[in-house]
């Protein structure tokens, strides 16, 4: 019976879809969040930067919350503070500061674009854990609500909080190449619509970290991060042989994708790398697409 049920799941997977792909930027998206430091200790302050896509020239807001589930403080948000917030754009600086203080007291750590997200990890976040347990730590949760007048994107992001002797660092992309030609960060790129380009992102030296993991049997293992890559664009299509059933990668420190823009004008391509331990990095390319 189980396989009878499985078949309808597998067969449709082979049929072509007309739905938008995840790499297509055609609506409000929050693509990546980078916490610095990537694995804070209790009492440390974490700053966040994000990579988002907002179509058109529209106003947007991003409400940030953070907490450590399972900690002594726990996750207790008071959403009513948003109801009492009022119109920040008409407030005086003093009134805005008071409003931000009230937000932070209620568990809110950011209210973009006015208040950049900053999180002071509770100093008691790991209280109650054994010394061994504090090495593994707990997972802080960051919740972001990115909103425009027409759309909302809800995102969860974990931020490990620990006393690990080798805390995680965010991976950095050190190089970006188009058809094997290196592209300097921030440099302009001009491409032709309808033509395919191989885009390659490469991790910076040392970005692929090695760390110690204590198994459930109490054995310490040396592990190397297993990174994953995500690509996004708002023009044309992205294709990769790694999409789908790819399970091995001989060169984990780099990733290649084929981009075929199809509309003349401005376009963006983002490469995002995740290290599997909460760390993130990205490289964005602004391109001018000329008519084919």
């Amino acid at each position: 019976m189980a396989l009878m049920l499985l078949l309808p799941v597998l067969l449709p997977g082979c049929s072509p879809s007309t739905l938008a792909e995840e790499w297509q930027l055609d609506r409000l998206r929050l693509l990546a969040i980078r916490a610095d430091p990537a694995e804070p200790q209790p009492g440390e302050t974490v700053t966040f930067t994000s990579l988002s896509y907002v179509p058109g020239d529209v106003d947007w807001t991003a409400v940030w919350l953070a907490c450590v589930a399972g900690s002594a403080t726990g996750c207790a948000f008071d959403p009513s503070v948003l109801d009492d917030l009022g119109d920040l754009s008409t407030m005086s600086p003093e009134e805005q500061a008071a409003a931000f203080a009230a937000l932070q007291a209620a568990g809110f750590i950011g209210f973009e674009p006015m208040l950049s997200p900053t999180w002071a990890v509770p100093s008691d976040a790991l209280d109650g854990l054994t010394a061994d347990e504090t090495l593994e730590g707990l997972s802080g949760t960051v919740q972001v609500s990115l909103t425009t007048a027409d759309d909302t994107e809800l995102v969860l992001k974990d931020v490990p909080v620990s006393l690990a002797p080798t805390p995680n660092h965010n991976p950095d992309i050190g190089a970006f190449a188009v058809d094997d030609a290196t592209l300097v960060l921030g440099a302009a790129l001009t491409v032709s619509a309808g033509q395919s380009y191989d885009l390659k992102a490469t991790l910076a030296d040392g970005a692929l970290e090695t760390y110690t993991y204590r198994t459930q049997d109490g054995v310490d293992e040396e592990r190397t991060e297993e990174v994953s890559w995500r690509w996004y664009t708002d023009d044309g299509r992205l294709e990769s042989t790694d999409f789908g059933f790819s399970s091995t990668d001989d060169t984990p420190s780099e990733d290649v994708i084929t981009w075929t823009p199809d509309a003349a004008g401005d376009a963006v391509v983002h490469a995002v790398v995740l290290d599997g331990r909460g760390g993130m990095g990205w490289w964005s390319v602004a391109a001018t697409v000329t008519g084919g």
């Binding site: 929050l30 809800l154 995102v155 969860l156 992001k157 974990d158």
Partner: peptide
């Protein structure tokens, strides 16, 4: 009706 993006699992 819509979804929640869990960024770390993608």
């Amino acid at each position: 009706d819509g979804g929640l993006y869990y960024m770390d699992s993608g």
